[in-house]
Design a protein around this nucleic acid. Structure first.
Lengths: 247, 247
DNA sequence: CGTTTAGTTGACCGTGCTCAAGGGGCGTGG
DNA sequence: CCACGCCCCTTGAGCACGGTCAACTAAACG
């Protein structure tokens, strides 16, 4: 069930993310913030935000909560192909394609801004930095998607899970959603398995391996990275593909 | 080694592809064709077109030959994350990110058009249909990348290879590079293995299985699909994610 | 309280990997 | 013209990583 309302405070993440990709002009930031609070949608955990086959007619920008993009094969096998984290945009200009080729599900309660085609085009037409920021966002999502292909194709179970943790941590860090070496990780082991292409049983054992190596602590939907360098080594993680500006 | 020169005749594939994604205005088609022949680059088989870490400063549009995007892990494992086929654009607006996060290698002799940042922005600024066509191209590449994640994460060897054949066949068909149920497939088994996340040995055995099932004939770098429906079933292939306009 | 959902553990099995060897085609150089 | 090397494909044998099936625990929730 969807409920629509005003939502304040979370649009900061969006601006932080776009700024990290491409510096926005002050006027652009103001215009964008206004657009983000015009129409927000809340979705409960476990609900679908969009389904494969749905008409694609608006742009979604995630304000809070975790969602995932996924596809289910005929026989029930599910693959999560990416997460959608706060501050991230779900396919700018998506409406140019007629319909969704995958589904988007809420893993936790989610709030996102919904921007109609005309309104979105107005935003990018009025300010070059906004247009470029959304291009960057799309290009980076593409790069992340490539990295997931590498993860699934050529890394073993331990490496995959370690890499996923590193990536998510960085994606959250750039929008200010980490505290020290901790961040939320509100995802079941089933979801993690579907994101890493493993079975739940093997994912569970892999987590235990990471814990035994004192690389991470994961409990009550909270991730603490005890040894960032160690985790990066274990996952063969190199953050360059995230294209976040160095500070 | 690179040689630069004039290249005629192949730009048709680019126009066919962009038109299949978004109808170009007649004037746009003319302007684009002109831009495509201004500066073309030829690369020999096996050479790299771009390397991870290179400065990203121009847009590449492939005119003929096959290339692949790939990344190599520290210990030598290689994953091909996508192919770049004639008519396809390699990251419009790529120059917005400062550098390449992966490499692009030529699998056969390749000819591509190289468009400088200023020239490219002029093209998309002058005609809305061009801008939209490149957005579509990028969004579809993103969708293809997602599908590869599914292939690598949740399909078994036979399904992966069958799916790859179906996808490549469709991508070539929309630019007019198929003849009946045949198309070029100028790729070594090593490359196919790296694209499907399999070992060469197992890929070889999987090919034999597809041949034994009379689904395909693959010899002398030429693929014939003997039973398209059968191959689609075997690969759980649904072309919707390619977003090609139905004729 | 019973039911459901998430996490955990054990035992067994199979897909796909590794290692190793050999064959065929082709270009190069003696 | 043949020899050699190289690349690509193929085959066999053994093994391991990760899947499947099943049972059990603990927490959450009505």
């Amino acid at each position: 069930m969807l409920t629509v309302g005003q939502e304040g405070g979370h649009e900061q993440a969006v601006l932080r993310r776009l700024n990290a990709l491409r510096r926005l002009s002050p006027e652009a930031a103001i215009a964008l913030r206004a657009a983000l609070i015009e129409r927000t949608v809340r979705v409960g955990a476990g609900e679908d935000i969009a389904c494969e086959g749905d008409r694609a007619d608006k742009v979604r920008i995630f304000l809070s909560g975790w969602a995932c993009r996924y596809k289910v094969l005929e026989d029930g096998r599910r693959q999560i192909v990416n997460f959608a984290l706060p501050g991230e945009t779900c396919d700018a200009h998506l409406y140019l394609l007629s319909d969704m080729d995958h589904s988007i599900g809420a893993l936790t309660p989610v709030v996102y801004a919904e921007i109609e085609r005309g309104r979105f085009e107005e935003l990018v037409a009025n300010d070059r930095t906004v247009a470029e920021a959304f291009w960057c966002e799309t290009l980076v999502m593409n790069a992340i998607q490539r990295e997931w292909a590498i993860n699934l194709g050529r890394r073993d179970a331990l490496e995959r899970v370690a890499h996923l943790f590193c990536e998510v941590f960085e994606r959250l860090r750039c929008v200010g959603l980490t505290e020290g070496t901790s961040c939320a990780f509100p995802v079941t082991q089933m979801d993690m398995a579907d994101a890493t292409g493993l079975s739940v049983v093997h994912l569970n054992r892999t987590l235990q391996e990471l814990r035994a190596a004192r690389l991470i602590t994961l409990r009550e939907r909270n991730l603490t990275i005890n040894d960032l360098d160690g985790l990066r080594d274990a996952g063969l993680f190199n953050p360059n593909y995230l294209h976040l500006r160095q500070r």
